[in-house]
Amino acid sequence: MADRILKKDNLGKLVASVNGNGGRFIAPVLDARQVVFKDVTKAEEIVTEYILARNSYKEYVFPQTEVVADFTVEKHGVDLKSREVEARETVVFGARPCEAASLSSLRAIFTWDYIDEFYTKREDSLVVVTVACTKADDACFCTTVDLSPESRAGSDLYLLETESGDYMVEAITDKGRAFVEKYKGAFTEGSGKAKTLVMPEKIGTIDLEKVSARLKDKNHYDDQVWARLTRKCIGCGACTFVCPTCHCFDITDEGTQFAGERRKNWDACQFDTFTLHASGHNPRHYQHQRWRNRFMCKFNYYPEKFASKGCVGCGRCIRVCPVRLDITEVMEEFSR
């Protein structure tokens, strides 16, 4: 049930208030012929006709590159000073229900054996405003992983577009309710007629239980099927970088001999150097073994360790893949 209406004419007010409060307003905009999540200052920049933004909004809680510490090399040794995270209120407007569900997956890993404050502080101040999908494409498969345009998980506010371009607002979490209260000037009483939601067809040949069960069976680890289905993978990081649940990073130092910064940069299990040992040995020597890892991570390790999903079915990895390697084809194979 809608609690409030966000009139399209009030969206500008909301953007301005959030920015005016020192916060960030992230929304899908057109950049280099693509729809991308970016900071916006004016409602006019926001695109409404899109399936999913090219990038996942994870970069606002887990930046592609960030300085975590500064160091100087002194006579007595190295002085390392950790940076403090400055988390500002960050609103992501126009997330889709599938990717909204990904935040709990990121949280699970970043609070698993160590609380990574660079992540948690940012996530604590993130407000996810989901707009439910009225369009999908041949890569969307949320319904196959038990999500759908109607899923509320992970959203603070869940919005339905109306025929007249306004939004019916449903507050899902306390954070969402507090947000509506804080910016009540932008949210009004009223109603509207919601546009019909799209419902991607569930891929009938995929059975998630079977996928997990088969992956648990260690005999499948060296199955020829990996090579057969994924030898075409060229080992770029594209799929992992656009994926809302991929979370691997690398720590690297930049600077001079005497001083510099320590950075946390996105890394990808698809890169051959990801597991390369100093000895020169690489336990994942072939690309299909690296691809296996990505699949195992999502459909075996995650379900085994955490309550959250390893894959939310957003289809980004399929769309971006230069060789059109389709994760659902592998899911299908492991459903047999």
């Binding site: 950049d31 770029c236 990081g237 594209a238 996105w266 890169f271 230069p322």
Partner: peptide, 15 residues
């Protein structure tokens, strides 16, 4: 400006 968008995925190299 163009390169500022690069996400270092190295797809250009791998392909």
């Amino acid at each position: 400006n163009e390169f500022s968008r690069c996400i270092k995925c190295y797809a250009c190299r791998q392909v």
